[in-house]
């Protein structure tokens, strides 16, 4: 994958941060909430980057930044090497499309399936209505829906069918990157695997690049080529999927993996057995943000924030692997 001067990554984040100012109480002062804190990531064409972390760690905020729906407070997002700040939103829309979590909320209940799926074509003025209809029929077939659903409404469809419609809408303009924000979390367990399989097939068929967000490691295991683990706005570990599952380094990744091995990992938020609850992101813990919940916490973790260390493909942000500590205690 890293062949020196290959083409630039399809998608690259450079030191991206997003800080919300949260007002507490009626006259309370505004406090900064670092929803995304200095994140750098890159996706090569055809990659599926799984982004995993508990609810509230900043995954959706990161997705919105990629889609150009939120401006980062600092840092840069590059698509094919070009910063998206400079790109027209409409051009960006043709390259990056989202699939959201809740198919009951992501389809406008007042519109027919035809209108929903053809909206991107109409907004971008692609083709006339006959060719748009044809494109809708084709994409419906691709996502496994019969073309007669064109005249149906979202309320007449099941969750899985709706999510297929959302996928069709995302793919109809042949984007390069699809940002899937928890695309199966709201679906029945039996339907989840159908949608995951479909996303896998589509990726192969169209050479798509995915950012696949989930709070559950088990969901990304079969689809992802790389996995990034996020905690309180930071990427604490990133590795190829095999390496991450076989030899996780960060204690948080270990805890997430342990939770995947519980009998029914698909049901809701994984129980991380982490004891202490998820911290308040407005007042994150000092030093390593994870230290109050870490099973292997050391004295210096409480005061000093760990630096990112990387051996080629596998990077981690933890004092256990820091240069200063020298040896890995894995």
């Amino acid at each position: 994958m890293s062949e020196g001067n290959a083409s630039p990554p399809v998608l690259e984040l450079r030191n991206v941060s997003k800080t919300y100012q949260i007002k507490q109480g009626m006259f309370g002062e505004r406090k900064p909430l670092k929803a995304v804190n200095d994140v750098s990531l890159s996706l090569q064409r055809g990659d599926v980057l799984g982004l995993v972390g508990e609810s509230g760690c900043g995954k959706s905020t990161l997705a919105k930044i990629l889609l150009g729906l939120e401006a980062p407070t600092s840092g840069e997002v590059l698509v094919d090497g070009e910063p998206i700040g400079a790109q027209n939103r409409r051009l960006l829309a043709r390259r990056i499309q989202p699939i959201f979590q809740d198919p009951y909320s992501s389809l406008n209940p007042r519109k027919s399936i035809r209108d929903i799926i053809s909206l991107p074509l109409r907004v971008h003025g692609i083709g006339d209505s006959a060719s748009q209809d044809k494109a809708v029929r084709e994409i419906l077939d691709v996502v496994g829906l019969p073309s007669r659903v064109m005249n149906s409404y979202p309320s007449q469809m099941s969750g899985g069918q709706r999510q297929r419609v959302a996928i069709a809408r995302a793919l109809i303009m042949k984007p390069e990157v699809v940002v899937c924000d928890e695309p199966t979390s709201a679906l029945d367990v039996s339907v989840q695997s159908q949608i995951l399989n479909l996303l896998g097939e589509l990726r192969r068929e169209f050479g798509l690049t995915y950012l696949f967000i989930s709070h559950n490691l088990a969901v990304v295991e079969h689809l992802a080529t790389r996995v990034a683990v996020m905690y309180l706005g930071r990427i604490v570990e990133e590795a190829p999927v095999g390496a991450l599952f076989d030899e996780p380094r960060h204690p948080y990744t270990e805890a997430l993996l342990a939770s995947v091995l519980t009998p029914e990992p698909d049901l809701g938020v994984p129980d991380t057995h982490l004891g202490a609850t998820y911290p308040n992101p407005i007042e994150p813990p000092t030093g390593c943000h994870f230290h109050p919940r870490c099973a292997r916490v050391m004295e210096r973790c409480k005061g000093v924030a760990p630096q990112l260390t990387s051996d080629g493909e596998h990077s981690v942000e933890c004092h256990l692997y820091g240069q200063e500590s020298g040896q890995a205690v894995a």
């Binding site: 919105k64 889609l67 150009g68 729906l69 939103r89 409409r90 960006l92 829309a93 043709r94 990056i96 499309q97 989202p98 959201f100 979590q101 809740d102 909320s105 992501s106 389809l107 406008n108 209940p109 007042r110 519109k111 909206l119 991107p120 907004v123 971008h124 959302a166 809408r169």
Partner: peptide, 26 residues
């Protein structure tokens, strides 16, 4: 805050289109 509004924004709809075509009918 419904996701279909976010989806319309991500598709590249103008603000007036989002308001008139996605929000108003609802």
């Amino acid at each position: 805050s419904r996701e279909y509004v976010t989806a319309a924004q991500a598709i590249g709809c103008s603000t007036s289109r989002v308001i008139l075509s996605e929000i108003m009918p609802n």
